[in-house]
Design a protein around this nucleic acid. Structure first.
Lengths: 189, 189
DNA sequence: ACAAAATATGGAGACAGTTTCCGTTTGTCA
DNA sequence: TGACAAACGGAAACTGTCTCCATATTTTGT
């Protein structure tokens, strides 16, 4: 599906430089400097930046793709080793905990999830599919309600990601997760 | 507190024209046309627009203020006539139902809630205070858990508002509310 | 009723960030 | 090594935001 195209040597080099510098900048909290500056600081031309990453969101997605994939992998791992509801709870707790110290990731996810559109949302889809599988596991197991789907959980996470970074939000982020976890439990008849 | 300043006649007229045109545009789904164009279409100059509404969000807030206040009033009314948890549930259901057919309001709220930048967020604070009171009522009554605060619920609503308008989101919006309502119940020991 | 003072107007233009375009450079392959 | 394709850089065009101030309207005092 994903058309692997062999990139020319200098192209790959520039792309990597861009990515490395962007990662560094994001990590130090600079989310909204001029888009052009990502190019300048990485030592490449503006055109090159745009050729590799047509939008700010595309750049952010590329930077965090690996990290996001790792988190998803962890989710699957939890699913394999714990009962579904506990796995889901652990996953969500870990997720929020990670977001709290990686604001750039939170911002990026907030954007990706809000992006109704196109191609670059598939970082978000990767996450949604992990959650869907966790839910399914819990439904089979009988511990998770069967009347809500992963999309609903994604909305909640979206809210959490957006709020992340606001002073004093940590407690409410945890609160939202608490609500989500207990709200997902199959209700006693 | 709110400094009521007598507005000059033409000023009030222009302000109203702006508001009316903006309401009409929002209702027809045009959220992101040039900000300047709101002025042009309302038949006033750019300066006038900026004088009355310094930002896009300020304009949106003014447009929806009345509507939002009505929703909050309804929340208080529910609180007065139903047990707290039921009032909260009815409020949230009604809220989402309303959002679903008023996308402009949803967008506006999403923005207001995300904006920690105070002055224009007090539409958001009005909402938060209604929810806080509903929660408090339920805690006293013993039906709502006491370990999460209104901020957590606001995050969830933020996610819902952001998602509103995406095709097929309605079911998940309802799902998120379902999770929230059940997640807020005091857990049996 | 009128003039002075106070208030508000409009829209040209400065500005900042974004994006395109194309002449030049660099890498690839035979 | 030459020819061709791929990628580069960065100046210039563009787009939306916002400010400024000479001009116009309203209010107030007499």
């Amino acid at each position: 599906m994903t058309t692997e195209k062999p990139l020319r040597a200098d192209a790959r080099r520039n792309r990597d430089a861009l990515l490395a510098k962007a990662r560094e900048l994001f990590a130090s909290g600079c989310f909204d400097l001029r888009f052009d500056d990502f190019a300048r600081l990485a030592g490449v031309g503006t055109g090159t930046l745009y050729r590799h990453f047509p939008t700010r969101a595309a750049l952010a997605e590329a930077v965090y793709r690996e990290e996001l994939t790792a988190m998803c992998a962890r989710g699957r791992e939890l699913q394999a080793t714990l009962p579904a509801l506990e796995a889901l709870a652990a996953f969500l707790r870990g997720f929020v905990n990670h977001l709290d110290t990686h604001e750039g990731l939170a911002q990026t996810l907030a954007t990706l999830m809000a992006a109704r559109t196109d191609t670059l949302a598939d970082g978000g889809r990767e996450l949604e599919s992990v959650i869907a599988d966790l839910l399914t596991g819990g439904i089979v197991e009988g511990t998770i309600r069967d009347d809500v789907s992963a999309g609903a959980v994604m909305m909640i996470l979206q809210g959490i990601c957006t709020a992340c970074g606001q002073p004093g939000s940590r407690a409410d982020m945890d609160g939202a997760v608490t609500i989500a976890i207990d709200g997902l439990r199959r209700r006693a008849a």
